[in-house]
Design a binder for these strands. Structure first.
Length: 267
DNA sequence: CCCAACTCCTGGGCGC
DNA sequence: TGCGCCCAGGAGTTGG
């Protein structure tokens, strides 16, 4: 499921050829989730940025195409538009690079939106999203303060995108494990928040370097799998020994999300 | 404002 | 072999 590292990997692959291209034609699956694709017909892409798990494509007419990949979305250049699960596509005027880009999404949890540049009021999560975890505004003090604003479980708060942007189920479990923080904790001490901060930076940085985590559906734009699934130390390892203390990792359901943690060393 | 519950989707894994 | 069931899950929506 695409989280920050997966979206950042895709962004880096798209930006070099997508910037400067003009949309000649577009079409989509007849769902409000995808029909905004055609709204940028005629516009030229001037930037390809990312905020959390959202991909932001700025246009020359001061709008943005906002792409969320949901669970199973992928962006594939030069992919046949009549293949199954193609939910939207854009064709570009002649230029350097591929002639078209396809949004493929099996489960249709992804969505597209075209907004005035920077105006995210119609996208609630993006509107209230926390700082970029790999940017200067994400600090131990900021994370500690952000988590104190709610008594919801730490993992639930991370998944809300409000304390910090871009963390999903996989990297939440990984970060809590590295930080020795129990995902079900409702309050964190400053040292715990400091460890969690460092762990979030570490897991996301590593995953970006590895091109993202492919569990099933995530693909890079050339169709290849990411490599980070070989580096996971907690997520998906329920029943296996904790790499730190040897106790069996436990799996439970936390606010409707599968959660794996070590009951011995995550306190 | 906050929060919990519900909803959207479909392929894949499982039991029988 | 094939059927039916249920799970995975990010975030938008709704209602309290």
């Amino acid at each position: 499921m695409p989280e920050l590292p997966e979206v950042e990997t895709i962004r880096r692959e798209l930006a070099p050829w997508l910037i400067g291209r003009t949309v000649a034609a577009a079409d989509s699956h007849p769902s409000i989730k995808f029909t905004p694709a055609i709204e940028i017909t005629g516009a030229t892409i001037e930037s390809v940025e990312r905020r959390g798990k959202y991909l932001l494509c700025g246009t020359d007419d001061r709008r943005e195409l906002v792409v969320h990949l949901g669970m199973t979305g992928s962006l594939l250049p030069d992919f046949p538009t009549d293949e199954p699960y193609v939910r939207a596509w854009w064709r570009f005027e002649a230029g350097r690079g591929p002639d078209d880009l396809v949004f493929r999404d099996v489960r249709r949890f992804g969505r597209l939106r075209v907004v005035d540049a920077g105006d995210y009021r119609s996208i609630p999560t993006l509107h209230t999203i926390g700082p970029e975890p790999l940017g200067p505004d994400f600090t131990p003090t900021q994370l500690h303060a952000a988590l104190k604003r709610s008594t919801r479980r730490v993992k639930t708060q991370l998944l809300s995108q409000r304390p910090v942007a871009g963390v999903g189920n996989i990297y939440a479990d990984e970060a809590c494990w590295i930080a020795r923080v129990r995902p079900s904790a409702r309050t964190l001490s400053k040292p715990q928040a400091t460890r969690l901060h460092a762990a979030i930076v570490e897991v996301l940085t590593t995953a970006v370097a590895n091109g993202g985590t492919t569990l099933r559906d995530y693909r890079r734009t050339d169709g290849r799998e990411g490599d980070n699934q070989h580096h996971l130390r907690c997520y998906g390892r329920g029943g296996l020994p904790c790499a730190r203390c040897g106790a069996g990792l436990r799996t439970t359901t936390l606010d409707a999300r599968t959660t794996t943690w070590c009951a011995r060393c995550q306190r």
